[in-house]
Design a protein around this nucleic acid. Structure first.
Length: 472
RNA sequence: GUCCCCAUCGUCUAGCUUGGUCCAGGACACCGGCCUUUCACGCCGGCAACAGGGGUUCAAAUCCCCUUGGGGACGCCA
């Protein structure tokens, strides 16, 4: 059995967006599933628009996602000699020719073709002129207009194209730099790529590429065109759909595994299963479960999946993704054991790492500032006595454990003749400053005896200072 | 304009290959309820779809055709 070799070939003209990430993911998963190879190639033949910064950003995103590559990154801009060689072959075999038509002439041809009810095309004017290489001549591929080209797509099935639909497209620009259609084919041939999984938007390029393969006498790879990811208005994903870069999701507190999980399910399915860990995906991912229709990117579902992944992650694994968010707020992240304990109290109530951070703030503050609403509602005069009493009982505890703590509560409840709820909420505000938080026993356990007592005392002082003793 | 692709709840989808087990299943969102020291988690329940029209067939979400709708491509971008 042959080794499957896939690739991801982004062009460095911007950041890696979620659609591209999904394409990379499919190629990567398939390669991993088949125990094959995954190659990364930077398609920077467009010297004008390609930037080093974009290339770096893309690599960074892939690394964060955990999509690793076995070869590369190769840069097309460093492979011009190879392309030149192949172009010469095409020229020699009569499958390509020089063309000196001007932009105006070509514009005319296109208009005419449109007027005749067809696609805007180049009419092949220079094809038989046998022109030599001159100053600003381009090289065009002499495509066959007879017959049809069949694309055997592993996802969409057979697609037929009448060859008359194709024109003689440019394979080398006037400045000598090859264009996309030529470079992909040459790269895929020389890199041994045998499986090409890419976006739907490339379907119409495929017959051109297949023709180049034929002209070169090389067997084309297996193609699989995955449907596009659309924005909520059903149009192609773009900036106006909001945050679409991988790094934006990272910065919003999403876990890479959650993004990957969401992305893979957008277009691929495994029965009714929604939640996947990466290893599981590698084990279960195959091309035949990829759907044929385009999908809309749904942030809500991604959010929900992120919450699931936060819940399912081992705290010690989550720490490394969480630390940057803590650092951003100037919080100390050295005590990872403490962080893990905090996570355990908050992971079921945080949908993102930002929510986790916000929910955890009180753990890091020595001085709790009370939320006005929460204080008003729970720091009522009637709560003063129970809190004071509770403080005293807790201080008296020798071993700060659940049993003793429970005992302290019982005593307070009995002597004040109140229910647990009456003491729990004020205590919560005293400990966290908020009316919403993890369970108070969990919190006390993480905070420890000293912090609990100190926060209780401060709450008592606060209440005494701000509340006139209405009831005796 | 021309070519290509697609079409199941609002969204992602299962089911379609090998018609009947589907008056269509799961998930997100939404709405109820339970649990409960708050908020969540969790659990239970509800709302909600086979685009339309023709065929084929005893029988069609599943096969065929047309219409409509949506998307994509037509670059010296990739």
């Amino acid at each position: 059995m042959k080794t499957i070799i896939t690739r991801f070939p982004p062009s460095p003209t911007g950041y890696l967006h979620v659609g591209g990430a999904r394409t990379a993911l499919f190629n990567w998963l398939y390669a991993r599933h088949m125990k094959g190879k995954f190659i990364l190639r930077i398609e920077d033949t467009d010297l004008e628009r390609s930037t080093k910064a974009s290339a770096d950003a893309i690599l960074e995103s892939l690394e964060w996602l955990g999509i690793d590559w076995d070869e590369g990154p190769y840069f097309q801009s460093e492979r011009f000699d190879i392309y030149k060689e192949y172009v010469q072959k095409l020229l020699d075999s009569g499958n390509a020719y020089y063309c000196t038509c001007t932009a105006e002439e070509i514009e005319e041809m296109r208009k005419k073709a449109m007027a005749d009810g067809g696609k805007p095309k180049y009419n092949g004017k220079c094809r038989n002129k046998k022109l030599g290489k001159t100053g600003n001549a381009v090289v065009r591929f002499a495509s066959t207009s007879a017959g049809t080209t069949v694309l055997k797509d592993v996802i969409k099935g057979n697609i037929q194209f009448k060859n008359t639909e194709l024109d003689d497209f440019i394979i080398v620009r006037s400045d000598g730099v090859p264009t996309y259609n030529l470079a992909v084919v040459v790269d895929d041939i020389t890199m041994g790529i045998n499986t090409v999984i890419r976006g739907d938007d490339h379907v119409n390029n495929t017959p051109r590429q297949i023709q180049i393969y034929k002209a070169l006498g090389v067997e084309p790879p297996a193609y699989g065109h995955v449907p596009m990811v659309l924005g909520n208005d059903r149009s192609r994903l773009s900036k106006r759909h909001g945050a679409m870069s991988v790094t934006a999701y990272r910065d919003m507190g999403y876990l890479p595994d959650a993004l990957l999980n969401y992305l893979v399910r957008l277009g691929w399915s495994y029965g009714d299963q929604e939640f996947f860990l990466i290893d599981e995906l590698i084990e279960k991912f195959t091309l035949d479960n990829i759907g044929r229709s385009a999908g809309i990117f749904d942030q809500e579902k991604l959010l929900s999946l992120n919450a699931d992944h936060i819940k399912a992650s081992r705290p010690n694994k989550l720490v490394k993704y969480w630390q940057p968010f803590l650092k951003e707020r100037g919080l100390d992240t050295d005590d990872t054991l403490y962080l893990e304990k905090i996570i355990e109290t908050l992971n079921t109530r945080s949908k993102t790492l930002i929510e986790l951070t916000e929910g955890a703030l009180f753990y890091f503050q020595d001085e709790i500032s009370y939320e006005e609403k929460a204080a008003k509602k729970n720091f009522k005069p009637a709560a003063l006595k129970p809190l004071k009493l509770l403080c005293a009982h807790i201080e008296a505890i020798e071993e700060f454990n659940e049993a003793n703590l429970e005992d302290a509560f019982k005593k307070v409840m009995q002597s004040c003749e109140i229910k647990f709820g009456k003491i729990a909420q004020p205590l919560r505000v005293a400990l966290t400053g908020k009316a919403v938080s993890p369970g108070i026993f969990e919190i006390m356990h993480v905070l420890g005896k000293d912090a609990v007592i100190s926060r209780l005392k401060k709450a008592v002082i606060f209440m005494e200072a701000s509340t006139p003793p209405l009831s005796a």
